[in-house]
Design a protein around this nucleic acid. Structure first.
Lengths: 240, 240
DNA sequence: GAAGAATGGTGATGCAGATCACACAGCGGC
DNA sequence: GCCGCTGTGTGATCTGCATCACCATTCTTC
């Protein structure tokens, strides 16, 4: 480990695999793992750094080791939607690389972080040489697809902002955040503006949603900690 | 060729490949092609037949030979969105099969048609045995992903129904439909209701959009033939 | 060709949420 | 302390579209 300019520790290797067992490049054969190690490189990024930008030709994939990344796409007039917040272990840019189309999103570091970079050409060669890895890639792509599909369902079917907001809150409340009493505590790290870009509404509406949900005892705010009172009540709102 | 109950000719084989050169299972090695032929079966479907339904465990993939298929997903309350209209050559259900998750959409024949079916297990075995095919599958999946992403952009960024409607019209106006004078002729095969489900609005709004676009000289209706006056004017509306 | 179903056209009404407009709070910098 | 900046709360207004209601037209099917 080395100390870096951004006050972050460099992990020697985060492609293979401490982060996730279901990871794209985990549990490969030994020679495949070694080959991967040769072609990857590691870099550290400050907050606000762009890993890649919507429309760029794909240079390679990024395996996120530390820090969260905002994936977004924008219209010409500047309307932006955030399609996903990625964190450690996620593989970014895979679709673009496999199909050799421009990156379909912009990937921006939301906080200082670290990622492994695997350039396009060596990666494609690697996939040819190690077929088991390409099956993995296919599976990862199809996971991405399902995530995208969820997004479509949310955007297309969930009508009101309340519904989408409740859905987002539910997605934040995972097992790990559950308290004994059925409530759930989450660190709020997004601005209202960002939440608006996720659920496809305006900042003002998000502000009003927070007020409304507080009033209805659905949530509570203690500093930067969001307390969700009960999943059940939220689920009742999400009538998907 | 054989005559069938639905007044349709059976093609002996439509997996490999007359329909499309960029096809998933085209230009495979000879043994791979033969193997594929052994595991596939062909069937004919009437209008309204469901190839598979959202939520079902994946049985296999369908390679569409003839007829169009409506892919849709619904919310509990019965709101439906159509995510894609597939036609000959499309591969349906691939994502579900590769990741072994339930079909994420319902696939319904919009007209009598024919499809090859490849059951899940033999297909997965086939992919293991013929690595070049799994690279193809990865590419196909990533194409699917891009299509899904387009959908997300449309739903998330295009604000008004007019915009989405114009976008849909543009997607219908391809090179093949262009006339010399810059206009474009398309057969209208969807009901207003279906169009509404594609662009996420109501039937009434679609009716009004047609009136409005006619009034603005953007389109014209001759029987079932839709004449788009100029792409440019439509593109001006789509301010994505 | 008649009965019935599916599809399409259009008016009246109401309301949710976008937009605009400010005011205020927190925070870092110097 | 003062500034400037980013993020938040909330009122007032305006509008586009969903909804309801009904009728007209066009397709099925027997």
């Amino acid at each position: 480990m080395t100390r870096t300019p951004y006050g972050l520790n460099i992990l020697d290797n985060c492609v293979t695999c401490p982060l996730r067992q279901d990871h794209l490049f985990c549990n490969l054969s030994l020679p495949a793992g070694q080959r991967l190690n040769e072609i990857k490189s590691t870099a550290v990024y400050p907050k606000g750094a762009m890993l890649f930008i919507e429309g760029q030709q794909p240079r390679g994939v990024f395996v996120l080791c530390a820090g969260r990344v905002k994936l977004s796409t924008s219209s010409r007039e500047g309307k932006t939607i955030i399609t996903k917040i990625s964190d450690s272990g996620d593989v970014l840019g895979l679709n673009a690389v496999v199909s050799n189309r421009p990156y379909e999103v912009t990937a921006e570091m939301m906080e200082p972080g670290q990622a492994n970079f695997i350039p396009r050409e060596p990666l494609l060669q690697f996939l040819k040489d190690y077929p088991d890895a390409s099956v993995r890639v296919a599976q990862q792509l199809s996971r991405n697809y399902f995530t995208a599909y969820e997004e479509i369902r949310t955007l297309g079917l969930a009508v009101t902002p309340s519904e989408k907001f409740a859905k987002l809150l539910l997605s934040w409340s995972t097992k790990s955040t559950m308290q004994g009493d059925g409530s759930s505590q989450v660190k709020m790290t997004l601005t209202h503006e960002e939440i608006a870009e996720i659920i496809g509404t305006t900042r003002e509406t998000v502000s009003r949603l927070f007020s409304e949900f507080k009033r209805k005892q659905l949530l509570q705010l203690k500093g930067a900690t969001l307390v969700l009172r009960s999943r059940g009540a939220l689920e009742a709102i999400v009538q998907l």
